[in-house]
C-alpha cells in the first residue's frame, strides 16, 4: 500500500516557491490499478514522481507498505527504487544499448544477479512482452509500441511490486495503446503488481483502472472507484474528461434536448442490468412512449454498463419510474 500523508510539493522558481501539489492524503491499495487524470500542469507527474522520490516532498510523509520512504537514506532509497518500476511517455531507452542490454541494465546496476540469471530473466521478459528474438536490435530499430514494450520489460526486470506509468501510451496510436494497456492489465493480474497510471484519456482509465483520482490545480478533486467517478462525475474537471471521452458535445446535447418533448431522463445501468430488455417492459407496463436521444453501451474494465438519455411522453410516468427503480437503474431527471 502506498500512503500519502499530507504530502506537498513546491518548486523553487526564481527564488519563489510555486506549489505543484497542495497537501494531499490518499492511499493506493496493493494490487490495484490506480489512475490519475487531469489537465496539463495539474500536478500528475509531480504526484507520481514523489512515490519513487525522483522529487522530494516539501512537506508530509510517504509510506510504502508501512515504511516511511521519505526518511530513507541514499542506500536504502536506491534499494527501494529497484522495487518500483517506471515507464515513460518517451520510453527513455538507452540508444547505445541493445534491447536485451536495456532490459538487463537495472539488474546489472543492482549488482545482485549472476550473468546467467540476467540472461534467463531477459529471455523471460522478452517473451512476456512478445519481443522474443528482438533482443539484439537497437531501440532506434523498433516501433513506438515495441519501444514501450521494452520499457515495460525493463521496468519489470528487478521484480518490482509497484509500477509507475507516466503517460505511457500518450505517444502511441490507438491500436498500439490498446495492446500496451492489455499488457499492463495482464501484468497486473498475473503478477499482482500495483500500477499507478497517469493519463489524460478517460478511455484509458475506463479500460484498465480500478480507482481513479482526478487532479486539478495541484489538488485531487475527485477520487473513487472508476465506475462511480465515470458514471456520476461530481467535479467540473471530471465532467469535462468524461464528456470528452464520450465525444459528447455539450452544446449539441442542449439543442437535442430542446427539440425533444416530454420528460427527459438519463438512465445508468451497470453489470447484468445492462443486458435486460428493460425499455420494452417500461413501455408495456406504464404505457409511456420514449425516444432515445443519446446512448452508449460499453465496459468499465470487465463490467458492462449503459447510459441512455431518453425523452418520455404520455402514459403513467410514476409507473415508469417505479419499474426503472425496481430494475436497479440509476435515474436522473434532466427535465
Amino acid at each position: 500500500m502506498i500512503e500519502f500523508d499530507q504530502v506537498e510539493k513546491a518548486y523553487q522558481v526564481g527564488g519563489r516557491a510555486i506549489p505543484a501539489l497542495h497537501p494531499t492524503s490518499l492511499s493506493i491499495q496493493t494490487g490495484e490499478v490506480f489512475g490519475i487524470v487531469g489537465h496539463s500542469g495539474a500536478g500528475k507527474s509531480t504526484l507520481v514522481r514523489l512515490i519513487n522520490l525522483l522529487e522530494r516532498p516539501t512537506g508530509g510523509r510517504i509510506l510504502v507498505d508501512g515504511e516511511v520512504v521519505t526518511d530513507y537514506g541514499s542506500g536504502t532509497l536506491r534499494a527501494f527504487r529497484r522495487k518500483v518500476g517506471m515507464i515513460f511517455q518517451h520510453f527513455n531507452l538507452l540508444s547505445s544499448k541493445t534491447v536485451a542490454d536495456n532490459i538487463a541494465f537495472p539488474m546489472k546496476l543492482a549488482g545482485l544477479y549472476s550473468a546467467a540469471d540476467i540472461r534467463a530473466r531477459v529471455d523471460e521478459l522478452l517473451a512476456l512482452v512478445s519481443l522474443t528474438d528482438q533482443g539484439r536490435k537497437y531501440p532506434s530499430q523498433l516501433s513506438g509500441g515495441q519501444k514501450q514494450r521494452v520499457g515495460i520489460a525493463r521496468a519489470l526486470a528487478c521484480r518490482p511490486t509497484i509500477l509507475l506509468c507516466d503517460e505511457a501510451t500518450s505517444a502511441l496510436d490507438p491500436q498500439t495503446t490498446q495492446s500496451v494497456l492489455k499488457l499492463l492489465a495482464d501484468i497486473n493480474r498475473q503478477l499482482g503488481l500495483t500500477i499507478v497510471l497517469i493519463t489524460h484519456e478517460m478511455d484509458v482509465v475506463r479500460r484498465v483502472c480500478d480507482r481513479v483520482a482526478v487532479m486539478d490545480g495541484g489538488k485531487v478533486v475527485e477520487l473513487g472507484p472508476v465506475n462511480e467517478v465515470f458514471l456520476h462525475p461530481q467535479h467540473a474537471t471530471t465532467r469535462d474528461f468524461v464528456m470528452e471521452s464520450e465525444r459528447v458535445d455539450q452544446e449539441e446535447l442542449k439543442t437535442d434536448l430542446q427539440h425533444a418533448s416530454g420528460r427527459i431522463l438519463r438512465l445508468t445501468l451497470q453489470g447484468e442490468a445492462t443486458y435486460q430488455p428493460l425499455l420494452g417492459r417500461v413501455a408495456r407496463e406504464s404505457g409511456v412512449d420514449f425516444s432515445i436521444l443519446s446512448g452508449r453501451i460499453d465496459h468499465i474494465k470487465e463490467t458492462p454498463y449503459g447510459q441512455l438519455t431518453l425523452s418520455l411522453v404520455g402514459g403513467d410516468l410514476d409507473q415508469a419510474m417505479a419499474v426503472l427503480n425496481r430494475a436497479d437503474v440509476h435515474v436522473e431527471v434532466l427535465r
Binding site: L54, F80, R81, R82
Partner: peptide, 19 residues
C-alpha cells in the same frame, strides 16, 4: 529522461555517469 530513468532504477551517480 535517460538520466531520470536510470535514477529511477536505483542507480548511484557513479553508475549513472558510467552506465
Amino acid at each position: 529522461g535517460i538520466i531520470e530513468a536510470t535514477q529511477a532504477m536505483g542507480a548511484s551517480v557513479r553508475q549513472i555517469v558510467l552506465g
